[in-house]
């Protein structure tokens, strides 16, 4: 474990907490894409299949349980909670997950570290996470008003992956034969997809104006 990875995991945890706070306290999921939340639940399910078979550390297991529990809770809130679901904008959140899942699955079957079920599912989860934010970014373009909590949630979600890249550089430098091209490339694509959001988020912070994405 290194400081980059710990900060990254805490940033990721913070993003989930910000979102759960928004949904649980103000009982609203306005501006949040259910599609992205569902994709993240799938990402964690496919990535943590080894939660009962491979024990890495208590930290690792506890964090996996937290990410699984929170991602499914958020999906449950947005789908079934009688108040929260009313603020879900299903007419705007129309991105078809299947267009993201199928290519990622095919790619995972073609490019993986070992052709076993768990490994292909693990690889699929990295490819899928790289693009899982797309429905959310599309929704942001469509809904003009982005409230602060939503903006902070997306910023933290993007920042955690950028921090993971620092962790991978650190581990590549300090650990002999630590090479994992699949997470590296996926993580890079994922972070780049946040590029323009980070830019507008920074502008809104610098000029102290409401976050607006160009149409």
């Amino acid at each position: 474990m290194n400081i980059f990875r710990l900060t990254a995991d805490m940033t990721h945890l913070m993003s989930v907490i910000v979102l759960l706070l928004k949904i649980h306290t103000i009982k609203s999921c306005a501006g949040i894409s259910l599609k992205t939340q569902e994709l993240y639940a799938i990402v964690f399910t496919c990535r943590y299949l080894d939660i009962f078979t491979d024990f890495i550390s208590f930290y690792n297991t506890i964090m996996k349980v937290i990410f699984l529990w929170t991602s499914f809770s958020i999906v449950w809130y947005m789908r079934y909670h009688k108040i929260v679901r009313r603020s879900y904008d299903k007419d705007q959140d129309t991105f078809r997950h299947v267009f993201l899942m199928l290519p990622c699955l095919v790619l995972a079957l073609l490019i993986n570290e070992r052709f076993t079920f768990k490994e292909v599912m693990w690889t699929f989860s990295f490819y899928l996470e790289a693009v899982a934010i797309l429905p959310q970014l599309v929704l942001l373009q469509r809904t003009r008003n982005i409230d602060n909590l939503t903006g902070q949630y997306i910023f933290l979600l993007g920042a955690y992956r950028a921090l993971y890249i620092l962790n991978w550089i650190y581990r590549y430098v300090t650990e002999p034969n630590y090479v994992h091209w699949i997470p590296w490339m996926s993580g890079l694509v994922q972070t780049l997809l946040y590029g323009d959001f980070f830019y507008y988020y920074f502008l809104s912070w610098k000029n102290n104006v409401k976050l607006q994405l160009p149409a």
Partner: peptide, 10 residues
């Protein structure tokens, strides 16, 4: 020696 086949990151 941590067996590298195990994925130790979240």
């Amino acid at each position: 020696k941590e067996n590298t086949s195990k994925h130790d990151e979240l």
